[in-house]
Write a protein that binds this DNA or RNA. Structure first.
Lengths: 345, 345
DNA sequence: GTGAAAGCGCTAACAT
DNA sequence: ATGTTAGCGCTTTCAC
């Protein structure tokens, strides 16, 4: 039975009184700021421990920092994003900073709401993962609070970026399939209408990388792209369409693992075996791909590394807001599993 | 090129000046509080729009509320939790409240850190999903800020709870399998050592429900429980052990979908077909279960409904902190798919 | 190196 | 119905 009225919180004043020093002194110790002798620090630290004091972030934020980093994920369901998050929290673990996430948001409106909410709550910095908002909005956000944009290409002078080389990833896929003997390799992409996004978004880069790689392998004639969405139904629908082709592809490069799930379902329904009749490749190397019954060949983006870099860049910008913006591009790797093999036809 | 120095934020004082009223008046309009005439409201609203004013949550929190609800999820990777989150955000969508999540945390220490961080940031209320912390900690948290505990049984007078009836869920599974003709039904549970948790946690309730249901069907002799963990390797390991039994079970009830993934892998490795040789059932009806190549029979907890109820209870408690605590228990349903069938033996 | 005092943006209590 | 005033808990001048 806890008391119905919550006991008044311990404040910096309580600590100062208990340690027989000024609140200024306590504040300095809290922030490891200059101007407190070792004895002073020790005295204050002891008082803090004895009283169980924890500073109120909201109050700190009114004058200084809140020591809070906001992370916006587009879709909490995509098993790739937790990797990035792990990288971020790992880097921030030993700092005073705390990570808070926005609820999964899809669409510009939801993104705007979440970024605004984070700014209004005094977050010291933001990490935006694969945002779909127009650049103008991203730059506006970044002008108000230090921001790192993850998983979206395209440079800006106001925010840092960390992205994986999606063109290289697509090339890995095509190279792998060509190496197995495939020529008729189709791709299922996420439809992109916005002209800016069709350059900056990972899905667009993957489709572009696919086309380029096909050409480099002299397979210009075999290029076959179906536009749906990065979702299971999107994959299902795309696969259905590919099965109606006169010259059916022998391999399908799905733009994301979840797309590959729909592809596998469509193939199973049609009585086709994988990789016997067709090979299938995904992207992101999510936990889905690793599941025994699925065992999907996929491209690994090293999400943890992406997250670590994002957190590092954010800390650097927090330390110096005038520094030039940085773009980091990481290289993906291919993880071959049982969904790919030599073509039979 | 945004200005290097972020422009000073619009404050309530700016709005008051622009609307030619007092800051109090603006504050009242913001909070829909009593004591502002319709004309006043209109005037203030216009000024707010014209200046693009948004209140700073941190500053509001210093005196009143922050309009922020913190949600703690144990594991962002578990595809069941996003459902709950959706339910929460859906209920809060049309209110002034904003949801922020803690980073996925496992273990008491991580949970304590996240709950403390949320309290320190002035969150108005918390939703704790399947916390593993001792009750004392939960009650301590709840004594400081209105709290709803989700997915954990056991009542408390200081916090509300919303949980699914896991005993009933286990009974659904056993009933389904018995109906198909199975008798040798084994269960893979998540090992629980803590005495409190072995009563309050869903995994413990599922194991208990399994035992009770088996007895009710007169299958006392067939009760067979393997203790591992709710994870893919846990399922794999558990399945391996079950395959060594002299009298091999004809059906396996995995305590969670992710466990079933490991089970399916182990069976595939052993050259056994599902449901030809063995039937498999999961729990949570996650997106995994619905995947075509998996098609796992599972128990659906109606996570969205759980989330909605949690948000509702939190709002009610925010409105009246003295009200008696409420316990809500929802009923699960069984979703039959292709991983279960009649036994062959 | 230390502390007194002002003030961040907002709300609550109290006038009027 | 409206405005005046005093803080919330902390950081930041700026004295000493």
């Amino acid at each position: 039975m806890a008391p119905p009225k919550p006991p008044r919180r311990v404040t910096i004043v309580d600590v100062a009184r208990h340690a027989q020093v000024s609140t200024t002194a306590v504040s300095k110790v809290l922030r490891n700021a200059y101007g407190a002798s070792p004895e002073m620090r020790a005295k204050v630290r002891r008082a803090i421990d004895e009283l169980g004091y924890r500073p109120l972030a909201a109050a700190r934020g009114l004058r200084g920092q809140t020591y809070t980093i906001g992370v916006m994920l587009p879709d909490i369901r995509n098993p790739f994003f937790p990797e990035i998050l792990d990288g971020i929290t790992a880097h921030l673990e030993d700092t005073d900073y705390q990570v808070l996430l926005g609820p999964g948001c899809n669409g510009e409106k939801a993104e705007a709401r979440v970024t605004e909410a984070m700014i209004d709550r005094g977050m010291d910095g933001l990490v935006l993962v694969a945002p779909v908002s127009p650049r103008a909005h991203l730059e506006h956000v970044a002008s108000l609070v230090p921001t790192v944009v993850v998983g979206r290409h395209g440079h800006s002078s106001v925010y840092d970026t960390v992205a994986d080389d999606d063109v290289a990833g697509a090339a890995l896929v095509v190279g792998h399939l060509v190496g197995l003997g495939h020529r008729r390799i189709a791709h299922i992409e996420h439809r992109e209408t916005d002209p800016i996004r069709s350059v900056e978004m990972p899905n667009a880069q993957r489709a572009d990388g696919y086309r380029r790689a096909m050409r480099e392998h002299g397979l210009d004639e075999e290029i076959d792209v179906v536009s749906t969405t990065y979702s299971q139904p999107g994959g299902y629908e795309g696969a259905k369409e590919l099965l109606t082709r006169a010259r059916r592809p022998t391999a399908v490069f799905a733009g994301a693992d979840i797309v590959a799930m729909g592809v596998l379902e469509a193939f199973a329904e049609a009585g086709l075996t994988v990789p016997g009749d067709l090979s299938v490749v995904g992207y992101d190397n999510t936990t889905l791909a690793a599941l025994g019954p699925i065992s999907l060949t996929s491209v690994d983006q090293a999400g943890k590394e992406i997250g670590r870099n994002a957190a590092r860049l954010l800390m650097e910008r927090l330390a110096d807001r005038q520094k030039a913006s940085v773009q980091i591009r990481l290289s993906p790797t291919l993880v071959a599993r049982r969904s790919t093999g030599a073509p039979t036809a």
